[in-house]
């Protein structure tokens, strides 16, 4: 069942994945609106999806090559191309069969620079897709995240708690202030809009919730609620179920980085093709990163 047309020239990438649902989960977590374009970057290390909004919010999904059961990268440099994220996720979703681990092959480029997907589970049935790609827009804004000082300003919070806090802040809406202070060590989310709402996460009071905390001076920045919400609105259920934490860091100029970990381990039903490979299930994690720019008019003590 090989596609003859692309055999003439070796494609940049041929890879196989045994857990489509994990990839759908990871990509769904950066879908915060209906029509989004994503830039896909291929390299020998894996595949990165980059999604952006109006120069204020960027999200990246890292699918490292270790997540794939087979990963053959042959290109020079790092090929980049654009796809419609929503369409790609919907298409990928078609390959996922509930209660069944679906095995797919991804190939780029196919004829006409298309991205090709096909199921490789069975000889007698096959699902396939050809996704049109486009030349990507240049990245409008440099999201290089740099630490704000000598020590990083970070905290790790249970993803479920973070999502709940951000959901609750919908009520005041507008801008949300995030404040980190070293003594007593605490993180404060505060929204002022239609009324005020303040959520304090006290380190040491509840280490189950706030798992880690590093801060040597007080900082405070404001972020647009809708951007903050985009970082948590589509956290996959598997993240909550696995009781994972999300790491938040504040960098130079108040840039907020939010990191989630999404499991791409295959479901418990073993697949005959890869049993011998002995993959470490625990290491099969996709990294999701969001970068949120702060609002300009911050008034608190900053670096």
């Amino acid at each position: 069942m090989s596609s003859s047309a692309v055999d003439a020239e070796a494609p940049d990438l041929v890879c196989q994945l045994d857990n489509v649902q994990g990839m759908v989960d990871a990509l769904s977590s950066v879908r915060w609106k209906r029509n989004q374009d994503a830039v896909i970057e291929l390299s020998e290390h894996g595949i990165v999806f980059i999604v952006e909004e109006t120069g204020c919010l960027q999200a990246k999904v890292y699918l490292q090559r270790e997540l794939f059961t087979q990963y053959e990268f042959r290109a020079h440099g790092r090929p980049r191309f654009g796809v419609s994220l929503g369409l790609f996720v919907d298409c990928l979703n078609s390959f996922s069969v509930p209660g069944h681990s679906s095995f797919i092959e991804i190939r780029y480029p196919g004829p006409d620079m298309k991205l090709l997907l096909k199921s490789v589970d069975s000889l007698d049935s096959c699902i396939y897709a050809e996704v049109r790609t486009r030349i990507p827009d240049s990245i409008s804004w440099d999201y290089n995240f740099e630490p704000a000082g000598s020590t990083p300003l970070t905290f790790t919070v249970k993803s479920a708690a973070l999502k709940e806090a951000v959901d609750d802040l919908e009520w005041p809406g507008s801008n949300i202030q995030i404040k980190l202070q070293p003594a007593p060590p605490a993180v404060t989310f505060r929204g002022e809009g239609h009324g005020d709402l303040q959520i304090d996460l006290m380190y040491y009071v509840n280490t189950d919730l706030l798992v880690a905390f590093h801060c040597d001076r007080q900082v405070s920045y404001r972020y647009k609620y809708k951007f903050l919400r985009a970082t948590t609105s589509n956290i996959p259920n598997s993240v909550i179920k696995d009781n994972r934490g999300s790491k938040l860091s504040i960098g130079r100029g108040g840039m907020l980085k939010v990191q989630h970990l999404v499991s791409v381990a295959r479901s418990s039903t073993p697949h005959p093709h890869i049993d011998s490979a002995g993959y470490q299930q625990s290491s099969r994690i996709a990294y999701i990163e969001f970068f949120v720019k702060p609002e300009e008019d911050e008034d608190a003590v900053n670096d």
């Binding site: 419609s84 049935s125 096959c126 699902i127 396939y128 897709a129 996704v131």
Partner: peptide, 12 residues
């Protein structure tokens, strides 16, 4: 569609 082709084939 103009952006995507998605299909499934069942044989035998």
């Amino acid at each position: 569609t103009t952006l995507i082709t998605l299909g499934a084939e069942f044989r035998k």
